[in-house]
Simulated assay, not measured.
Amino acid sequence: MQDIFGHILEMLNCRQEMVMATIVSKSGSAPREAGTKMLIKKDFSTVGTIGGGLLEAAAIEWSSSVFDTKGLVVKDFALSNVDASAAGMVCGGDVKILLEYIDPFDENVVKNYEKAGELIKNGTDFVMITKVPHTKDCSSAGAKWICTDAGFHGIENEEIKRIAKSIREVYNNVKIKIFSDKEQYLAEVFSGFERVLIVGAGHVAQQFAELTKNLGFYTVIVDDRVEFANPERFRMADEIKVVSSFDNLSDNVTINPNSYIVILTRGHCSDKLVLAQVLKTDAKYIGMIGSQRKKTHTYGELLKEGFTTEDTERVYCPIGIDINAQTPAEIAICIAAEIIKVRRGMGLSPRSNLDTAKLLKND
């Protein structure tokens, strides 16, 4: 989801108009969940997916009139059993889709999405509320608000504040909901933003960053070498931080409970320095590249400094799921598989015997 917002901001910066398709509700075997988004460009190419096949074809066709009216449209799509069978599903389902024109020349629209991008970057939960038409016909562009625990962005509106408050109370259970009274509003919850912090910008990091972006993580690269940490090598990264040293890491990056820390620096001393700092955070995942020998030595040094066995047990080292990887690309896949495992709630498991130290000479 956060990657969609990145694409929106890129297109707005380039003054490209677009239509955003959002699944408002679904029933039956519709392939994607409510809240799933897809961008449709003026040439009808797309970014993201709401399920493929006939559903996306219909959304693209409907977007043509939305581009013309520069407004909103709510559409119902019924996937028949025959259609579902052709798509590889057992039975059909119904989907309600909101198609919304995003105007790159509307200052308020741009500011709203810039604010959303800023909140995502900072890992701040927010609710985005959009006024939608009661009818299924195209309407003028809907007003939009962004609400956080501490702020309100948009034209002051007590009803919007009430909606934001009610949906914030059920963050964990509701991601998208329509509120209908005199006016109709779509409220969407954006929370739990996941970021991968890759400390070290060598060959493994370069391969790994490609994967994390495709997996939808906000990806941050940190290194003390500008010849390694630069946009030419990490075109896919959301942020690139060139630091004078790996001391005081928290002064340069944000680490929260949705952070995945991957330590890939070029030396044992730097790895240990970074590890000692991130163990003091509430990061969801901490992984460090290296061998069993390196692990034993590093942990021993940390225990001497006052860290506990419980602290070191948080660390995935040697990093990655063991598939007998040999190359930087293969080991990047090992690490990506491991963070997916953690992302899906499988937690810590017995460490593999994967020896990644041999790859350090390439970094």
Rank of each mutant, 00 (worst) to 15 (best):
Glu310Ser: 14
Arg344Trp: 04
Lys26Val: 15
Arg343Asp: 09
Ala336Leu: 02
Leu359Met: 07
Gly151Ser: 15
Tyr285Met: 02
Gly93Ser: 08
Ala87Ser: 12
Asp271His: 04
Ile176Gln: 06
Ala150Val: 05
Leu9Glu: 11
Glu33Tyr: 00
Arg343Gln: 14
Ser25Thr: 14
Thr46Met: 15
Met11Phe: 10
Ile50Pro: 02
Phe246Thr: 05
Val82Tyr: 13
Lys361His: 09
Lys341Leu: 11
Val109Asp: 07
Gly267Ser: 11
Val127Gln: 00
Thr135Leu: 08
Glu118Val: 05
Gly52Pro: 06
Lys177Trp: 01
Thr148Asp: 04
Val315Pro: 00
Phe208Trp: 06
Asn230Arg: 10
Glu194Val: 08
Ile146His: 12
Ile331Ala: 02
Asp43Ala: 08
Lys182Ile: 10
Glu100Trp: 05
Glu194Met: 08
Asn214Cys: 02
Ser63Tyr: 03
Thr124Leu: 10
Val109Gly: 02
Arg343Phe: 01
Thr36Tyr: 03
Lys272Glu: 13
Val109Gln: 14
Arg233Ala: 01
Thr312Glu: 06
Asn81Met: 00
Val222Tyr: 00
Lys115Trp: 05
Ile60Lys: 14
Asp83Glu: 15
Asn112Glu: 15
Ser27Gln: 00
Asp94Gly: 04
Asp282Leu: 05
Ile163Arg: 01
Pro104Phe: 11
Leu79Tyr: 05
Lys131Glu: 15
Asp137Trp: 06
Leu360Pro: 03
Lys304Met: 12
Asp224Thr: 11
Arg343Cys: 09
Ala30Leu: 13
Asn172Tyr: 11
Arg344Tyr: 12
Ile160Tyr: 06
Lys165Cys: 05
Gly35Ser: 00
Lys182Trp: 00
Leu249Asn: 08
Leu360Glu: 13
Leu348Gly: 01
Val109His: 09
Leu273Ala: 12
Leu249Lys: 07
Ile60Cys: 07
Glu159Tyr: 08
Ala141Phe: 07
Asp125Ile: 01
Val73Ile: 14
Glu313Leu: 10
Leu197Tyr: 05
Ile335Thr: 06
Leu279Arg: 03
Asp311Tyr: 11
Phe228Asp: 01
Ile178Gln: 02
Gln207Pro: 05
Gln277His: 05
Glu17Asn: 13
Glu310Val: 07
Thr124Val: 15
Leu39Thr: 15
Val262Trp: 02
Ile176Ser: 12
Lys41Asn: 15
Phe126Tyr: 14
Cys317Tyr: 03
Ala21Phe: 09
Glu313His: 12
Ile340Met: 13
Leu79Phe: 04
Cys269Glu: 10
Glu313Phe: 05
Lys284Glu: 09
Cys334Gly: 06
Thr309Cys: 10
Gly52Trp: 00
Ile4Pro: 02
Ile323Gly: 06
Leu211Gly: 03
Glu330Lys: 02
Asn248Thr: 10
Val222Pro: 09
Ala357Ser: 14
Ser166Asp: 13
Tyr260His: 02
Thr124Glu: 14
Asp181Phe: 09
Glu227Thr: 09
Val242Gln: 04
His203Val: 11
Ile261Tyr: 06
Ala21Tyr: 07
Gly88Arg: 00
Arg235Leu: 13
Leu79Asp: 00
Phe5Ile: 15
Val196Glu: 10
Gly151Phe: 12
Lys358Val: 07
Leu79Lys: 03
Leu186Tyr: 01
Lys284Met: 09
Val204Ser: 00
Glu305Asn: 05
Leu360Val: 14
Val204Ile: 05
Gly202Thr: 00
Ala201Val: 06
